[in-house]
Each structure stands twice: as C-alpha cells, then as structure tokens.
Amino acid sequence: MTADTVISAQGLNLTFQTNDGPVHALKDVDLDIRKGEFVSFIGPSGCGKTTFLRCIAGLETPTGGTLTVNGMTPDQARRARAYGYVFQAAGLYPWRTIGGNVKLPLEIMGFSKAEQAERVARVLALVDLAGFEKKFPWQLSGGMQQRASIARALAFDADILLMDEPFGALDEIVRDHLNEQLLALWARTEKTIGFVTHSIPEAVYLSTKIVVMSPRPGRITDVIDSPLPKERPLDIRDSKEFIDIAHRVREGLRAGHVDD
C-alpha cells in the first residue's frame, strides 16, 4: 500500500446466507488500486466482480477482511460522496429531462442553482450530449441514455468512478464508440475508474490494470498490469501487445474454470 493508493482490499471475504446454505461470493481478495488507474474486473457470472464493486461502493458489507476507500471505510466514503456509480442500465428517471436527471445528485447534495446549471452543461458536453438537455430519456437511443447516466455520475466531481457493466446491453458498434469516448474522458478528468465487464477486448482496450476473477468461491486469479500506452486508437486491438494481453486474460479465465 503506497501513498497514492485509493482503494485497498486486504483478505476481503463476503458470504451470503441463502436458503440453499451459505454462498462464498468473495474469498480472500487482496487488491490495491492507485490514483488515476483504470482497473477492469473480468470473469464469468458469479465470480463476485459486481459484488466486489458494490463492496467498494458501500452497497454490500464484507463479512471479513479490511477494505478502505480514500483511507476511509466504504460506508464513510459513500457518505463523503467519494465516487460516482454507473449501473448496467441507465436507470434515468422517465419524468425528468436529461438535464434534470444529471441534476439529481446535485440537488441531493445541495449544490446552488447556478452551480447545478453550470455543472450539467459541462458534464453533458463531456459526454457529447450538449443540446440534449431538454429531451426526455425515451427520446434518446440506448447508447445516449447510458452516456447521460455517466454524465450523472460525473456531475458531482467525485475522484472515483465505479462502472458495473455499463455497456453490457449495447451492441458492439455503439460499445466501441463509447469505449473510445470513455478513454478520452478518463484522460481528461484523471479519475480512478473501476470497471466491471465480461468482454475480454473491452477490458484489455480500456484498462491499465486487469483483474481476472473466477467463481465458487469468488476470488482473484490474476492481476495484469497493461503495458499498452495511454494513447489508444481503436486499431491498437490488432497489435501484438494487445493480443498477448488478451491471451493472458483468457488463460486466467480458463485456469479459474479448471479449479471447479
């Protein structure tokens, strides 16, 4: 754990009690995430990647081990509004315009009216939705809705952005485009990003660090620090380095499978 560590998990465990007995969702998870990193969590369903992200967000409480976010407990970090969270579905309120949706956290956190307007305009421009402020969610495509939900997570300027399969429901062409935009956004804002996905190319393309997880019990099988440069055009996916990392991720996923 170094001075610029933002998120730190040591021996993290989480067991759910269900009707079919206890389920070991996370087992002995150790991980440090440094400021400004883009970390992807990849693995098959049931590997605990979403659960881990929810633990970081303070939405689930671990049953063992320690977890700190900005040096605080996840719950304290949540109360300090330390992160923005993007869910699988955009989850925009149908009764609010795009601008109104982005404004929601700002209202809750008590920003002044003038600042609300200024921030809404800024983050909508950041996700290329300037001019859509007055539209209602159902007047936008799925990709645009998800961009709006990212803008909503960015609006209050938290240093951490947690994203739970944000592009999982979108088609591949839209997803490529959003991935490019997300990288540009990350470069401009220098946020720390935790990103859950089940797509290998997406994980490799986006991340500076790839965390490979496997199920039953949910645990980390490999952590790969990406040697790819920060500047990543889409065709970097045809490069040797890219294919090598993707191969290593696939190996990690397969190794996890052999175990059960």
Binding site: R54, A57, G58, L59, R78, R79, R81, Y83, G84, Y85, F87, Q88, A89, G91, L104, P105, I108, M109
Partner: peptide
C-alpha cells in the same frame, strides 16, 4: 433495487 442503490451512492 437499482434505483434505490443509486440514491444510496448519493447518500440521499
């Protein structure tokens, strides 16, 4: 649940 979680992340 997702909508309620969103509000929890805002500490509403």
């Amino acid at each position: 649940a997702m909508q309620m979680d969103l509000l929890r992340t805002y500490y509403a």
